[in-house]
């Protein structure tokens, strides 16, 4: 998002853009906010804050472009810049630790799990959801953006301010870690191997 004004919208048009292009994404934004904060009140604040910022900086939004990606970017930035500091949940992110995980050979190895398609399909929503929630926030985020929200790699790169190559490698590692967790659930629950 560039904050440089691109176009002046009359008030009526701003309201129309807000209603027709921004508000329809409130469901997925709330879901994203909840999976970042794990708290209903925090999620409400984060979503509300995102919409207020979106309206305030509406001049830097180009009508007809991808409003959802634009809003997700604001939400992600709000979470990192404003929110994480005051969040009830202390930040779990230690970037050195994250980079260490990124650079570790261990996560690059193919996890030759005993997971089978049937095992995955037999899992209940809670297990998938818990496995996703247990991932460190940067890994969780790429899975949400890609698999849940269907963003393309180039959109994710813009939302997260990282190169596409990093999107791809982070996603790959996130999936390995997720699979590892699912494998753990499968073993605990005694799913058929």
């Amino acid at each position: 998002m560039s904050n440089l004004p691109r176009k002046k919208y009359p008030k009526k048009e701003k309201e129309l853009i807000f209603e027709s292009e921004f508000l329809p994404h409130v469901d997925s934004m709330y879901n994203f906010a909840y999976r970042l904060t794990f708290d209903e009140d925090d999620s409400k604040d984060l979503v509300q804050d995102t919409f207020l910022k979106a309206y305030r900086f509406i001049e830097s939004f180009e009508q007809g472009t991808n409003a959802k990606a634009w809003l997700f970017r604001i939400l992600k930035n709000s979470f990192i810049n404003d929110f994480r500091k005051k969040s009830k949940q202390p930040s779990k992110v230690d970037y050195q630790e994250v980079e260490a995980v990124y650079n570790s050979d261990e996560v690059d190895e193919v996890i030759t799990t005993d997971l089978r398609v049937e095992t995955v399909q037999d899992m209940i929503g809670d297990e998938i959801s818990n496995a996703l929630n247990a991932l460190e926030v940067d890994f969780r985020t790429v899975i949400i953006l890609c698999d849940l929200e269907g963003f393309k790699y180039d959109e994710m790169a813009k939302i997260l301010d990282i190169p596409i190559g990093t999107v791809r490698s982070r996603l790959h590692r996130a999936r390995n870690l997720l699979k590892d967790r699912l494998q753990g659930y499968a073993l605990t629950r005694g799913y058929r191997k």
């Binding site: 929503g125 996703l132 849940l148």
Partner: peptide, 25 residues
Amino acid sequence: DVAIKKMIREKCADRRVPNGLVETI
């Protein structure tokens, strides 16, 4: 991988916007 991706899409979009939030916004 396809099965996991599908499960995520189906099972993890479960948080409903609380009543009144849209009106407040």
